[in-house]
Amino acid sequence: MNTMNHQWQRFTLKQKLSRYAVYLVLIMAMVQSIQSVEVIPEFFFDAPEQMADMFSRMWPIDFAYYPVTVHDAMIETLNIATLGTLVTLIFALPLALMNASNIVASPWVHWIARFFLVSSRSVNSLVWALLFVSIFGPGVIAGVLAIAFRSVGFVGKLLGEAIEEVNMGPIEALRATGASWMSVLLKGYWPQILPAFFSIVLFRWDINVRESAVLGLVGAGGIGVVLSDSMNLFEWQRVAVALLSIFAVVIVAEIIVVNIRKRLI
């Protein structure tokens, strides 16, 4: 008879309690933050007016400025993104191999690889750019290295996961023929991770196009330099051109990547 009166519940008591604990902590953090954050309310209520003012200054858009500087800067931005993505591979491939448990079994190597991957992801690309600008001086090289160092964590992590998911059958078959370590990598693992590899690299390239557009704000080359220069001179109509061209390039890059990835997978 007990089953008749049994009340079905989706979650256990412990699950419920821990969920409520998360909600509670979040609400407490929110209340605490709102009380202590320094926000001037007048600025907040003034915001729509100021935004409208800013956009009205952008009009009419100064399209004549595009061929003067924006075009070259845009090409430079694309080059930074592409070259940065290629340089990433030099670091990301060994780290991905070190991070994959079916290639290297030692936990020490995993920890070393993971340390590099996590620190690459933790430091924002703008911060990497600041570091490299102070090393190499303002210019493209700082941008390329910033993009490269930032992407290592992303590419290395996803690539390592792709390597761990390969079918071990062909690899054992190759090993049984007495193939060398390099041959097993090239003819066993590589063909299997090829689609994942290209899709990860393209995905990262898409992100890098967005990121390289802002690196110029700290002096690392590309369209960001034009953007920050025109902004410092209050040339809002030129700012609008730069923003519009970034918008267009980002959209085109995304469309290209989505279409190639559709065919790959």
């Binding site: 954050v37 320094e38 926000v39 001037i40 600025f43 907040f44 003034d46 915001a47 100021q50 935004m51 003012d53 800013m54 902004m231």
Partner: peptide, 9 residues
Amino acid sequence: VKSVGFGAL
């Protein structure tokens, strides 16, 4: 930043 000023907001 340009429209609401410097700061956390």
